[in-house]
């Protein structure tokens, strides 16, 4: 009894304690996440200013944009071969080239880019043509109630109701942060829907089609809400 060495089967359940310890740490992490996240973002924001290696981009929730694409590779387009087609239920379907879009009156919208995956870039300036202007120029027919967007990656699609599409903070964007939008960021032309989550702001925009009703977009067919309002979005008025 006393002289018998403790066998492993009798000892303290340290394995179970390790398991429960991690669970407790995970729960504490969920509770402490909001303040920790804010501190972390501030720290990374400062660090990424001086970091030339890009390593800070690998850390959890770094500042800056992340690259998301639903296809394997996306063709590159520039002023020579880019075209934006406006069609569907409109009086005057037409195609714009990149210089033609640049020649139209430009509007600036400063808003937050918020991804459903947790990263966000606040106060990002976008410049471009108001979607409402393009729709007015095309002349939406009476039966049109929604707008469907297609992209030259060949797969991505998005949708807005006509009312949402006519808001003054919805842009066919050409510039982001005062620079032409790069290929990686969805250039040369992307959508920017300021009051909604960033998946609504389709990259590599190539087609705008007025439809009779809302057609669910790529992620919306996969469970995302069609009305992707940000939590603090002003849902009634287009003023940004």
């Amino acid at each position: 009894m006393a002289d018998r060495p403790k066998r492993s089967a009798d000892g303290a359940p340290v394995g179970r304690r390790a398991l429960l310890g991690v669970l407790a740490a995970g729960a504490a992490g969920l509770v402490a996440a909001p303040p920790l996240q804010r501190g972390w973002e501030n720290f990374l924001g400062a660090a990424s200013q001086v970091d030339r290696t890009g390593l800070t981009g690998l850390l959890p929730n770094p500042g800056g944009f992340r690259y998301y694409s639903v296809v394997g590779s996306v063709p590159r387009k520039d002023e020579r071969n880019y075209a934006l087609t406006i069609g569907g239920l409109v009086e005057n379907p037409r195609t714009y080239t990149l210089p033609e879009l640049r020649a139209l009156p430009q509007t600036r919208v400063v808003g937050d880019a918020v991804c459903t995956d947790g990263w966000r870039v606040d106060n990002t300036p976008f410049d471009g043509v108001k979607l409402a202007d393009l729709l007015d120029a095309a002349g939406v027919r009476g039966e049109g109630t929604a707008v469907r967007f297609t992209c030259f990656d060949g797969a991505y699609t998005e949708s807005l109701t006509l009312e949402q599409a006519r808001r003054s903070d919805v842009l066919v964007a050409l510039n982001m942060q005062d620079k032409p939008i790069t290929h990686q960021q969805g250039g040369p032309v992307r959508l920017y829907v300021a009051p909604m989550y960033f998946y609504k702001s389709a990259k590599w925009l190539s087609g705008i089609e007025v439809t009779e009703q809302v057609v669910a977009g790529f992620w919306e067919e996969r469970g995302y809400p069609v009305d992707g309002w940000l939590e603090d979005a002003d849902r009634t008025d287009g003023a940004a």
């Binding site: 060495p5 403790k6 066998r7 492993s8 089967a9 009798d10 000892g11 303290a12 359940p13 340290v14 394995g15 179970r16």
Partner: peptide, 9 residues
């Protein structure tokens, strides 16, 4: 065996 800690652990 994985769960239980003995003295020699």
């Amino acid at each position: 065996r994985l769960n239980r800690f003995a003295e020699y652990d």
